[in-house]
Design a protein around this nucleic acid. Sequence first.
DNA 1: GCAACAATGTAGACTATGACAACAATGATG
DNA 2: CATCATTGTTGTCATAGTCTACATTGTTGC
Lengths: 206, 206
Amino acid sequence: MSERPYHHGNLRTALLAEAERTVRERGAQDLSLRELARAVGVSHGAPRRHFPDRQALLDALAEAGFERLGGELRAAADGAGEDFQPRLRAIAAAYVRFATRDAALLELMFAGKHHEQSGALHEAADQAFAVMLGLIEQGQQDGILESGEPERVGLVLFATIQGIAALITGGMVQPEQLDELVGDAIDRFLGGSRAALESRAAAAAR
Amino acid sequence: MSERPYHHGNLRTALLAEAERTVRERGAQDLSLRELARAVGVSHGAPRRHFPDRQALLDALAEAGFERLGGELRAAADGAGEDFQPRLRAIAAAYVRFATRDAALLELMFAGKHHEQSGALHEAADQAFAVMLGLIEQGQQDGILESGEPERVGLVLFATIQGIAALITGGMVQPEQLDELVGDAIDRFLGGSRAALESRAAAAAR
DNA sequence: GCAACAATGTAGACTATGACAACAATGATG
DNA sequence: CATCATTGTTGTCATAGTCTACATTGTTGC
């Protein structure tokens, strides 16, 4: 009967894995500590040793989510060569892919940043966004994006990507339109930058 | 002691009002039917007569939210004169204002569209978005936006606005940056449209 | 080795919630 | 005014989160 020893061995990891599964399939609201414990085969009080309360588990989930997101964004960037535009499109696609596949998790990640940062969570989030910021800086150095604080320039782009993901998970757009929409958004973003650059150049030449 | 008669009179309305308050202050997760009943002064079973289950209450809240959102968008549009750009900026500002003031409610409204539409909910949502679509059509007639299905042209704009709201409610941007960010986004949107129009015009002249 | 201690898991209790059913009071209708 | 539908009330049940007391196992210093 493959009796489990008294100590599970890596309960924390097992709980997080099972929790992530549940969140993906049924949302964060349906996540029950007791059900989780049953699924992993421990008593209902065991999770408490690793997560003081339900919120602590959710925070840990969010942190793991940021780490995974950061990894996927980095992988997308690395796999797209050196040029700015392909990198931009690859990263945007990777973000939207994550956001649509793990919509509930992303929601959790955003919600977690709302109340106090647990430090580690904030750290993980920054790591993930560092990829975006690096991309913006490259665009500026290449002269494709106007200069200024990368945060400010990048925020609009990020907001757009995030908004597209929200439209999909909200059911207002069919997933088939995803690529087209992201493409449109990026073209428009670059077009807007080009317009900004040209008007700036025109002013300088005057 | 101002004894309430056996029948409340307008329990449904009272419950919705109190629920909206709670959602705004503490989020939808903290919304408890029993607590709601206590706050309104009825027994814990009473709400069931008006909302079969918790989700039904949430759906009704979402529907009311769409109606209010639609009203605020229309009011913003009407108060901004006839020209396209001021109307665009006014509507965007109104949307972001709603989205930040009632973040939890908006989340509910989006989540509700995920599972089956309750008909009335869908109706209310369409009414709200009709304002956006009308705006896009005006922009196209004025030659400021490229032609095409209003939905497709407007979606990127809507996604951006929605994304900015998400950044704010997610705590990744300070509320003070809101106006600046929305302004940036609109300038960029219009710039992108101008670029699209010009390249189209150039192609036509060739 | 082993005794003390920390870490981890178990079992039971308590309170709150959502959902349901049986019953009571009121309002509407013929 | 008798009947029926509407709307509230009360009690019950299963489940959840949290807390406390206790049991088992791992670790560490002697």
